[in-house]
């Protein structure tokens, strides 16, 4: 037998470390999911397969309440953020540099640059003032805060899509008697659609996952699912949290899968 052939791309130990990383990334999650199906009350021993923790979560009004609130906020914030981000992306791409363009980039991406905890306390101060002045105590604060930090995430795929779009297509539409509005509706928007969808899904997931900002901005009785879970974990661990986490994970994976294929399958 000849000597093993020299593999140009291989580097010693790299594959081993990579495999360890993938195992390490997924093993804790798999264990977490496994304990969600554990019949025992303690999370340190295995008491047989059971769905009772899912049932208990389902019958927990606080959980259902927080879940509904999470979805309300995520749907509204992602919608507003996607609309604002789409408009902003149209305003900041496919143009020669103009005064204010760099400023706009910096502004839109700002929520990515500042540590969340800082934004969180800033909003806590700001919103508590507004609450004193206006007396408003609804979900508006959370929706506003979520919209703001979702904008840069929604903006990313939309902008990428716009930048890879062929400018001559719109020129061709104008050449064929389409007014700017018609050219946008018939050519730009249909081509941009996958980007907008991807942006919406990203914004939705980001809003749904948020803990820190929500935890500071929320008023009494405005727990979202993540802040409810944070509170419960701090109080002590029951397998019910595992059950909620499992359901949550499933949803995230579903959305990410959709996003992954929506943004990759097309062209």
């Amino acid at each position: 037998m000849a000597k093993r052939r020299f593999d140009l791309k291989a580097l010693p130990g790299f594959t081993t470390i990579a495999v360890i990383c993938f195992v390490a990334l997924y093993l804790p999650i798999i264990i977490l999911v496994a304990y969600a199906f554990n019949a025992a009350t303690s999370t340190s021993e295995w008491g047989g397969f059971s769905l009772k923790w899912f049932a208990s979560a389902w019958n927990n009004d606080q959980v259902i309440d927080a879940t509904i609130r999470s979805f309300q906020i995520a749907v509204l914030a992602a919608t507003f953020a996607t609309i604002a981000a789409t408009m902003a992306a149209l305003a900041t791409t496919r143009t020669k540099a103009y005064r204010g363009l760099t400023f706009k980039y910096a502004f839109i991406n700002q929520p990515l640059m500042v540590p969340e905890i800082v934004t969180a306390v800033a909003l806590l101060i700001f919103f508590s003032r507004i609450k004193v002045w206006t007396g408003y105590a609804g979900l508006g604060y959370l929706i506003g805060a979520h919209t703001a930090f979702c904008i840069p995430f929604a903006y990313l795929p939309i902008r990428a899509r716009l930048e890879s779009m062929d400018l001559t297509l719109e020129r061709a539409a104008a050449d064929l008697y389409a007014t700017p509005f018609k050219a946008f509706r018939r050519v730009t928007l249909p081509l941009l659609w996958p980007g907008i969808l991807a942006g919406f899904m990203l914004a939705f997931v980001i809003s749904l996952d948020d803990v820190v900002i929500t935890n500071f901005v929320k008023l009494g009785g405005q727990d979202t699912l993540p802040t409810y879970m944070l509170g419960q974990i701090r109080r002590g661990i029951t397998p019910e949290i595992n059950a909620i986490s499992t359901a949550f994970l499933l949803l995230s994976i579903l959305i990410v899968t959709l996003f992954f294929f929506a943004s990759r399958k097309r062209d």
Partner: peptide, 20 residues
């Protein structure tokens, strides 16, 4: 005049056919 008001049409180098 803007292009959509001119009775003039173009065949583009890249064709610019609408992919959708």
């Amino acid at each position: 005049l803007p292009p959509f008001k001119r009775p003039v049409n173009t065949v583009f180098q890249s064709y610019a056919l609408f992919p959708h």
